[in-house]
Design a binder for these strands. Structure first.
Length: 294
DNA sequence: TGTGCCCTGGTA
DNA sequence: TACCAGGGCACA
C-alpha cells in the first residue's frame, strides 16, 4: 500500500531521524533480504554517514558520505520504524541500520516483499520512470503522448511507472473517481481536455493523502490545499528533529472508492443506484462509481 | 497483453 | 485450511 504520499512521508521521517548519523552496523534479517544484500555487502556501509534521502517514484535513495547509495522499495507494506538500539526490535524487522549514537532504523515488512539494494558510487541505475505527478514535469501533452500507443484501460496504464511515477492501485482508483472517468476507458481515446482533468485529479488525491499524512499526527484539521514537501531533494527543511514525530501515524486514511464495494458513492449518497462497484483489471481490484464514472 | 511468482499475515 | 492482498518483474 505505500504509494507516492506514503513513501514521501517515510522518506521525510527518515531524513529527520537519521540524516548525518553514522552507521555502526547494517544487517539483513530475512533470507529474501540477505539474497540481495549479503553480509559482506552490508558491511560496506559500516562507518558511513547518511547525507541525503531522496525519493523517486516509490523508491527511496539513501546516499552516504562516500557516494554509496542504498536503494529501498517498500513494495506492498514496508515501512520504517525508529528507536534506540537497546529497545526491543520491532516485529517483522527485515533490515536494520544501527547508528553510532545508539539509535536504529528498522525496515519492517510483514510480507518480506520489500527490496533493499546497495550500489557503489555512481553505479545506481534506476528503472525507466515517468514524470513525478506533483511536479511541472507532468503535463497534459506529455501524458497524452504516453497514452497514445496504449489501448489498455486507463486504470492499468496509470499503474505503469513509466507513464506516471508513484501511482499505485489505490490512488489510481481514487484519481479516476476524482476525474469522473471510467477505469476501463481505453487510454488512447482520452482527449487532451480529459487528460488534463485526470492530471488535476491525480494531484488532488495525492496532495490530499499527503496532507492527511502530515497533519493527522497532531489532530489538526485535514489540509487539502497546503503545499507539502514533495521535492526530491529536501534534505533540510525548516523543522527541527524535535518538531517531527518520526513514528508513522495510525492508518486511518479515508478513501472515496477504494475498498468500498457496495457502499454508496459520496457524491450522491442518497441515490439507490450509486453503489461502488469492484472489478478486476490485470489481476488488481479496481473500484469505481457506475453512476459518475462513465 | 496476460499470467505467475515472490512473500506471509489476515480472513473466510 | 485455503485463499487473498498486490508492486514489479520474468516470461509466454
Amino acid at each position: 500500500m505505500p504509494e507516492l504520499p506514503e513513501v514521501e512521508f517515510a522518506a521525510h521521517r527518515l531524513r529527520h531521524f537519521a540524516l548525518n548519523k553514522t552507521v555502526a552496523k547494517a544487517t539483513s534479517l530475512h533470507p529474501a533480504f540477505t539474497k540481495r544484500l549479503w553480509v559482506a555487502e552490508a558491511k560496506r556501509l559500516q562507518g558511513r554517514t547518511l547525507v541525503e534521502v531522496q525519493r523517486r517514484a516509490k523508491i527511496q535513495l539513501l546516499t552516504f558520505d562516500d557516494g554509496q547509495i542504498l536503494e529501498v522499495h517498500f513494495r506492498m507494506n514496508g515501512d520504517w520504524a525508529f528507536g534506540a538500539s537497546r529497545e526491543p526490535f520491532p516485529a517483522y524487522e527485515r533490515f536494520r541500520l544501527l547508528f553510532t549514537d545508539g539509535t536504529r532504523v528498522s525496515l519492517v515488512d510483514s510480507r518480506a516483499l520489500a527490496v533493499v539494494v546497495r550500489h557503489d558510487t555512481g553505479a545506481l541505475v534506476l528503472p525507466a520512470l515517468g514524470p513525478e505527478p506533483l511536479t511541472d514535469a507532468l503535463t497534459p501533452r506529455l501524458l497524452m503522448a504516453s497514452l497514445a500507443a496504449r489501448r489498455a484501460p486507463i486504470k492499468q496504464v496509470l499503474l505503469d511507472q513509466r507513464v506516471v511515477a508513484g501511482i499505485g492501485n489505490i490512488y489510481a482508483s481514487e484519481a479516476l473517481w476524482e476525474a469522473r472517468m471510467h477505469p476501463a476507458t481505453p487510454a488512447n481515446t482520452l482527449s487532451l481536455t480529459r487528460v488534463a482533468r485526470l492530471i488535476d485529479a491525480i494531484r488532488v488525491v495525492l496532495r490530499r493523502a499527503q496532507g492527511e499524512r502530515y497533519h493527522m499526527r497532531h489532530d489538526a484539521p485535514v489540509a487539502t490545499s497546503q503545499p507539502m514537501p514533495e521535492t526530491l531533494h529536501d534534505t533540510a527543511d525548516n523543522t527541527t528533529v524535535d518538531d517531527v514525530d518520526v513514528h508513522a501515524p495510525p492508518d486511518v486514511m479515508e478513501f472515496r472508492v477504494y475498498d468500498r464495494e457496495g457502499e454508496p458513492c459520496v457524491r450522491h449518497p442518497h441515490s439507490i443506484h450509486s453503489k461502488i462497484v469492484r472489478l478486476v483489471q490485470g489481476a488488481r481490484s479496481t473500484y469505481y462509481c457506475a453512476r459518475c464514472q462513465r
